[in-house]
Write a protein that binds this DNA or RNA. Structure first.
Length: 420
RNA sequence: GGAGAGAUGGCUGAGCGGUUGAAGGCACUGGUCUUGAAAACCAGCAAGGGUUUAUAGCCCUUCAAGGGUUCGAAUCCCUUUCUCUCCGCCA
């Protein structure tokens, strides 16, 4: 959600921003509605003030005055009720409109409708070269007893998998490596609830405009499964006022991610690139408003540090306006080289959501006696499925074994390769 | 899952239809006293929103959350959530 005051002050900038993001939202209508709301609010408050004044007179009033005051009070009450109903309906309409606004993009975000306009900022490492026929992660994984999607399909359907054996050890090695790196950076490891209330999910902005299609809903309990730990970490400080001295708050969430993948039938059906369930370590930061840009660069640098440790070839991409998610003001993706596909695929993402989520969450900080919305940022440390693909494919040897990156070896019993 | 008790300001704890936005205590802030500190004494001290140059004033809202009764609700009624005790179940 963006600030109505901001829209009022900069209507043209908001219009331009929406246009860049290919969102057709009526800014003028929103402003008309907002004005209507503030007029109504003042009317309601003034009626209430009158009603309060009358109620205060009654205890001391004479018997003869009493009846008159009470009927006057009744009248005001009825008038106030009428206005309140009107105000509530305008409020609902306005909130609905406001939540459809995307965040205001940072100046440096490239224009363009889709990923074709994304900017490759740098390429690190060279696409891996093999002097033998390259196998994809499924061939490798099945041969080594790491991945069994067929049996998973039998019990759960498509887009599920059994990770087994060294794949599991590799997952926990990645988790350990990431947590060691992140705690050194001041992150607090967090295992969050995997189910959150629809209220919390709604406050994170994931339930509007078709968002609910993507989310598993446990209807008996009105809980939803998180699609990323961000959805549990963001609402953690809902309705709280944070002490700026304690910022930034840096959280490293480890959790499964549950995704219905409703709109992706037939896309990436092979292997473990796109699953209904995968584990992920996610970075999440709350900062002061003027620190979020610096923090965003920092999150990206941590992602690159983690990648450098694994020695995988990747590139950093800044997403174009149309490819940037609604809550984000700027998003960088890290795309890692996938030898079997011969392309870079997204393995990491980091977004500065500025005050877009914190405004709905009412997560604020008090500075110089004033309340301001904190800024929130998120970034992938490792998404287990995709990083496993990259590791298996890039590190495969001619004999079908997989070299283990050096930083993971201490967590793999000191071994340097996975073999049959 | 069953039975009961509860939720009030930073903390503690009164209030149980009408100057109660909320007694008292602790903590905190300022002052007197003191070489300094402590103690004692005096004074101040909730938050959110609107209006405003204002962290002045004025107005609205807030005693877990939501709804209701009433001219008037922290106080009465309903619903929900959470906490505690006992029983049951369980990793």
């Amino acid at each position: 959600m963006i600030d109505i005051k901001y829209i009022r002050k900069n209507p043209d900038r908001v219009k331009l921003n929406n246009k860049k993001r290919f969102k057709d939202i009526d800014v003028d209508e929103t402003l008309v509605l907002a004005d209507k709301q503030s007029v109504l609010m003042q009317e309601v408050e003034s009626i209430r003030a009158d009603a309060n004044a009358i109620a205060a007179k009654i205890p001391g009033a004479s018997e003869s005055d009493r009846a008159g005051l009470i009927s006057e009070g009744k009248e005001l009450k009825a008038r106030s009720k009428e206005k309140e109903d009107e105000l509530a309906s305008v409020g609902r309409e306005l909130t609905e409109l406001l939540t459809s606004f995307p965040n205001i993009l940072k100046e440096d975000v490239p224009e363009g409708a889709d990923e074709a306009s994304n900017i490759v900022e740098r390429v690190v490492g060279e696409p891996t070269v093999f002097d033998f026929p390259v196998k994809d992660h499924m061939e490798l994984g099945e041969a080594l007893g790491l991945i069994d999607t067929e049996r998973a399909a039998k019990i759960s359907g498509s887009r599920f998998t059994f990770l087994m054996g060294d794949a599991v050890l590799l997952e926990f090695a990645l988790v350990q490596y990431a947590l060691a790196t992140l705690t050194a950076e001041g992150f607090t490891p967090v295992v969050p609830p995997h189910m959150v209330s629809t209220k919390a999910m709604g406050a994170m902005g994931y339930l509007q405009r078709g968002g609910e299609e993507e989310i598993y809903h446990l209807k008996n309990d009105d809980l939803v499964l998180i699609g990323t730990s961000e959805q549990a970490l963001g609402p953690m400080y809902m309705d709280e006022i944070l002490d700026p001295a304690k910022l930034p708050i840096r959280l490293a969430g480890f959790s499964p991610c549950y995704r219905r993948e409703a709109g992706s039938y037939g896309k990436d059906v092979k292997g473990i690139l796109r699953l209904h369930q995968f584990d992920k370590i996610e970075m999440f930061s709350f900062t002061e408003p003027d620190e979020s840009d610096k923090e965003h660069a920092h999150l990206l640098s941590i992602q690159e540090k983690l990648m450098a440790g694994l020695g995988l070839p990747y590139r950093v991409v800044k997403l174009a306006a149309g490819d940037t998610g609604s809550p984000s003001a700027r998003t960088w993706d890290i795309e890692t080289w996938m030898p079997s596909q011969g392309v870079y695929r997204e393995t990491h993402s980091t977004s500065n959501t500025t005050d877009y989520q914190t405004r709905r969450l009412h997560t604020r900080i008090k500075r110089d006696g004033k309340n301001e919305y904190a800024h929130a940022l998120n970034g992938t440390a490792f998404a287990i499925g995709r990083i496993l693909i990259a590791l298996l494919e890039n590190n495969q040897q001619k004999d079908g074994s997989i070299m283990i990156p050096e930083p993971l070896r201490p967590f793999m019993g000191g071994r340097d390769k996975i073999e049959a």
